[in-house]
Design a protein around this nucleic acid. Structure first.
Lengths: 130, 130
DNA sequence: GTCTTATTGACAAAGGTTCTCAATAAGACT
DNA sequence: AGTCTTATTGAGAACCTTTGTCAATAAGAC
């Protein structure tokens, strides 16, 4: 069996991802880690994030600037409400929505439906903040 | 005022985008255009597509492979049901959904809500086809 | 402690996209 | 038609994120 090993690097990435508020890029995480004294390599950050995303311990999201953003999250299926200014992220559930999406797919004869649903806006703090 | 000019290149990109079924990448469009004898530059294709997207004459979408896909579309707001196999794309409307997304944003104090909603699946043809 | 091998980190590709800039040509004005 | 201004083009370089390479390291098992 593929024996996974626990390394300080993986723990560091996990921790840094947990500390971050909202979504962060692999590059940002790498910078943060180095700033805190780590000598971790960029490739390792990418590899670890990909693993976490695969394991369902992190959510990934394509930003408009063509980079992938990650965020620590619960493993259950959910969507996001994201502030365009500060990156604040709320997890939202939507049973109705899941059902709706699957229904629409079914109506048109599509099998194995999946979906991308993310809502963006400006959060309260950023509206009043400046 | 910024005076836009009408060039054969822009017309060519528009036309090629209209001919394409489903979403295509800038690179694909560029290949297609060259295959048809055009000497258009890659940068021009990118620029034109960005303009079209801005003008609401084309829809853009981030693929999983980190490239941006474009598609000619009606200017009204809508979402997509996309086949993962062949790229067949249906435009779908969802008044309820729009309302729901805005409500969720409002409930959490978010202003200027917008959203990304795309549904993926395997279309009928691809299910039976092979 | 020793051994095996998953993992690391530095660097080098590999994409997609944007920038640069001289050359071209669209539209306006005669 | 001819001239002028300047938006636009095309070729390539530059940029950025991401993935691959590979010798060196160290985690876990014995």
């Amino acid at each position: 069996m593929t024996a996974k090993r626990n390394t300080p690097q993986k723990a560091a990435v996990k921790h840094a991802l947990g500390e971050a508020t909202g979504f962060v890029s692999a590059q940002q995480l790498h910078q943060t880690l180095k700033k805190h004294g780590s000598t971790i390599g960029l490739a390792t950050v990418y590899r670890t994030l990909a693993d976490l995303a695969l394991a369902g311990e992190a959510d990934s999201l394509q930003s408009k600037e063509a980079e992938v953003l990650y965020r620590a999250c619960t493993t259950s299926h959910h969507h996001h409400l994201i502030c365009r200014e500060c990156g604040l992220t709320l997890e939202i559930e939507a049973q109705k929505l899941e059902k709706w999406a699957d229904e629409v797919a079914g109506e048109h004869g599509f099998a194995s439906p999946s979906h991308n649903i993310d809502i963006f806006g400006i959060c309260k703090a950023c509206q009043s903040g400046k």
